[in-house]
Structure formats: structure tokens, C-alpha cells
Amino acid sequence: VTLFVALYDYEARTEDDLSFHKGEKFQILNSSEGDWWEARSLTTGETGYIPSNYVAPV
């Protein structure tokens, strides 16, 4: 499993987005949709879409 870490804070803009804080780690569930990836936060357990340019591989 490839994990990603948040480089910046992000505040959700829609109900499908996932808010997160810098340093939070994610498991990517689906990265085939372009710039927005479906991810699960390893901190909160919540699932939603995150901007791929806000995260980097651990």
C-alpha cells in the first residue's frame, strides 16, 4: 500500500471533499479520476476526495 502525506492544510469545498491538516497520512483508494483522488485518512478514518497536488508519497 502506497501512503501519501499532506503537504498543506486543506478545507473541504464540497461534501465529497475531505478536509485535512499538514502531516496527515492517507491511503489512496482511487487515483484514476485526474487531479482529485479518493482517499482514506489514516488519522480520522474518513473517506473523500483530496487534491493530488496537496500530497506526496511517504
Rank of each mutant, 00 (worst) to 15 (best):
D16W: 15
F4Q: 04
F26P: 00
L3C: 06
D17R: 12
L29N: 05
S19R: 04
T44N: 06
Y8N: 07
I28P: 03
S19I: 02
S19Y: 03
N30F: 07
A12I: 02
F20I: 06
L3Y: 11
D16H: 14
V58H: 10
V58M: 14
T43R: 15
T47S: 10
D17P: 02
Y49R: 14
Y49L: 14
K25C: 07
Y8A: 09
R13L: 11
N30Y: 07
E33K: 14
L29G: 04
K22V: 12
P57Q: 09
Q27E: 12
I50A: 01
S31W: 11
E11A: 12
I28C: 04
E11K: 13
V1P: 14
T44R: 04
V5Y: 13
R13V: 13
P51Y: 07
S41I: 07
N30S: 14
Y49S: 07
K25E: 09
D35V: 09
V55A: 03
T43E: 13
S41P: 01
E24R: 01
V55N: 00
G48C: 01
N53R: 12
H21N: 12
Y54G: 06
E11D: 12
I28V: 10
D17S: 11
P51S: 05
H21T: 14
A12D: 02
T43V: 11
E11F: 10
F26E: 00
Y8K: 09
V1C: 07
L7I: 13
S19F: 04
S32G: 15
Y54I: 06
Q27A: 10
D17Y: 13
K22I: 09
T44V: 02
E11Q: 11
I50E: 00
K22D: 02
T44L: 02
E33V: 13
L29A: 06
D35Q: 11
S52F: 08
G23P: 00
L7E: 04
K22N: 04
Y54S: 11
S19A: 07
W36D: 03
S41Y: 03
S52Y: 09
E15C: 06
L7Y: 03
N53Q: 11
L18S: 01
E33T: 12
G48T: 01
F26S: 00
N53M: 11
L29K: 05
D9S: 09
P57I: 10
Y8P: 00
Y10E: 01
K22H: 06
Y10K: 03
D17A: 14
K25Q: 11
S41G: 03
N53F: 08
L7D: 02
W36H: 07
E15G: 14
A6Q: 00
A6L: 01
S31F: 15
H21M: 14
V58F: 14
D17E: 15
Y8Q: 09
E24K: 01
Q27C: 08
S19G: 08
T14Y: 11
I28R: 04
V58Y: 14
F4H: 07
Y10D: 00
Y10C: 04
S52A: 13
A56W: 10
T44M: 02
I50Y: 00
D17V: 10
D9H: 07
T43H: 10
T2V: 13
G48W: 02
S41K: 14
L7S: 02
Y54E: 01
T43Q: 10
T43I: 10
F4I: 03
I28E: 01
S19D: 05
E15T: 14
R40H: 08
F20Q: 00
S32E: 13
S31L: 10
D16L: 14
H21V: 15
K22F: 06
F26H: 00
E15F: 12
R13D: 10
E15M: 14
K22R: 11
T44K: 04
V1F: 12
E15P: 13
A12L: 02
E33G: 14
I28Y: 03
K25G: 05
L42C: 07
N30W: 07
G23T: 02
E33D: 15
D9I: 02
S41E: 03
D9G: 05
A56L: 10
E33I: 11
E33Q: 13
G45V: 01
E38C: 07
W36K: 15
L42V: 09
T14F: 15
W37I: 06
S31I: 12
V55Q: 01
W36C: 06
Y8C: 06
W36Q: 07
Y10L: 03
R40S: 07
I28L: 07
A56T: 13
Y8R: 10
Y49T: 08
D17T: 13
F26T: 00
V5G: 03
L7V: 07
L42S: 05
S41V: 06
A6N: 00
F4Y: 15
A56E: 14
S31R: 15
E11N: 12
G23D: 06
Y54V: 04
L29R: 05
P57T: 06
Q27V: 15
S41Q: 06
A56K: 14
Y10S: 02
L18I: 10
P57E: 11
K22W: 05
D16E: 15
G23H: 05
S41M: 06
R13P: 08
E46G: 09
T14N: 14
W36M: 13
E46C: 06
H21E: 11
T44E: 02
G34P: 13
T2Y: 10
A56Q: 13
P51A: 04
S32T: 12
K22A: 12
T47H: 08
L7R: 04
E46P: 01
D35M: 14
V58K: 04
F26Q: 00
A6E: 00
Y10T: 01
Y8F: 12
F26V: 04
N53I: 10
V55L: 14
T44W: 03
D16R: 15
S32A: 12
N53K: 13
H21S: 15
K22T: 09
I28A: 03
A56P: 01
R13A: 13
E38V: 15
S52T: 07
V5H: 05
A12Y: 02
E24W: 08
N30H: 09
T47N: 05
L18Q: 03
A56I: 12
G48F: 03
G45S: 06
R13W: 08
L3D: 06
I28T: 02
Y10N: 03
A12N: 05
P57R: 07
V58W: 15
A12H: 06
